[in-house]
Design a protein around this nucleic acid. Structure first.
Lengths: 130, 130
DNA sequence: TTGACGTATGCCGATATAGGCATACGATGG
DNA sequence: CCATCGTATGCCTATATCGGCATACGTCAA
């Protein structure tokens, strides 16, 4: 067996940095291939090939305008990536690990039978690294 | 040039579904290799190899316990993925907002007891598979 | 020690990739 | 019709991959 095709899903398509750059560029608005070629500073066939991959996973859409092809971002498939990685958000902050420990300690101190006050509601703190 | 190594970064490491499964499993707590083998239902060498990749990008850590090796999640590197994809979140939300607007308009147009005018909404969708 | 256990590694084969280069192709303007 | 522009595609090479299988390695129990 070989590695999964880049066109398998957004995860694989987006693993390539150049393709991320393309998406980043398109996030600023529609662009023609030539536009992207200039923006990325790589050969045109390279860009066209990456665009093909992105199109196949539904991350970009195309529109014909005269002899040019205008590409646009279609972020939908990224949602799978987002949804997956989002679940790990709370895990990468050491500070948060510390907080976890503290909370656990508190819970323990309070003793069994006591409920911690609705910890479910405080979900959206932004845990940044110092 | 070939495709970037899976050990290049979290993006590449995580493109493999099996490795995501491993991380998901480890999110529930430390696990030995045998544990993971059972959990995933694949051959042991396969698991060991995936774990190697994950270790090389810093997504897991190991600890020796007797003859077993206990792996733990180390989510840090996922932050790069999260930070990148997070920027796109609002784009599919916007889409929904748009949809909401359209639906609202339709509802308003229809009014109490009115029919919606045949919506010619469907835009592009050029999902092609050559 | 011997042997069983838990893991890691080596080798193989089939498959794809990314980019370089040349070229094919459709649209447009003389 | 012909030349040119804007893009896509084909061919090529070097390189990795993932999984299967066998096996090496370290640890623990008799």
């Amino acid at each position: 067996m070989a590695r999964a095709a880049t066109t398998t899903d957004a995860f694989n398509a987006v693993a390539e940095p150049r393709r991320r750059e393309i998406l980043d560029a398109l996030a600023g608005g529609e662009r023609s291939v030539t536009d992207l070629v200039e923006h990325l500073g790589v050969a045109q066939p390279v860009v066209s090939k990456h665009l093909r991959v992105l199109r196949e996973v539904g991350l970009v859409g195309v529109r014909d305008e005269g002899r040019a092809r205008i590409y646009r971002l279609e972020a939908g498939p990224l949602r799978a990536v987002y949804d997956w990685v989002k679940g790990y958000e709370r895990l990468w902050s050491e500070r948060f690990d510390l907080l976890d420990t503290v909370l656990e300690d508190l819970r323990a101190e309070r003793g069994p039978g006591q409920q911690p006050e609705s910890p479910e509601s405080s979900q959206e703190d932004d845990h940044d690294q110092p």
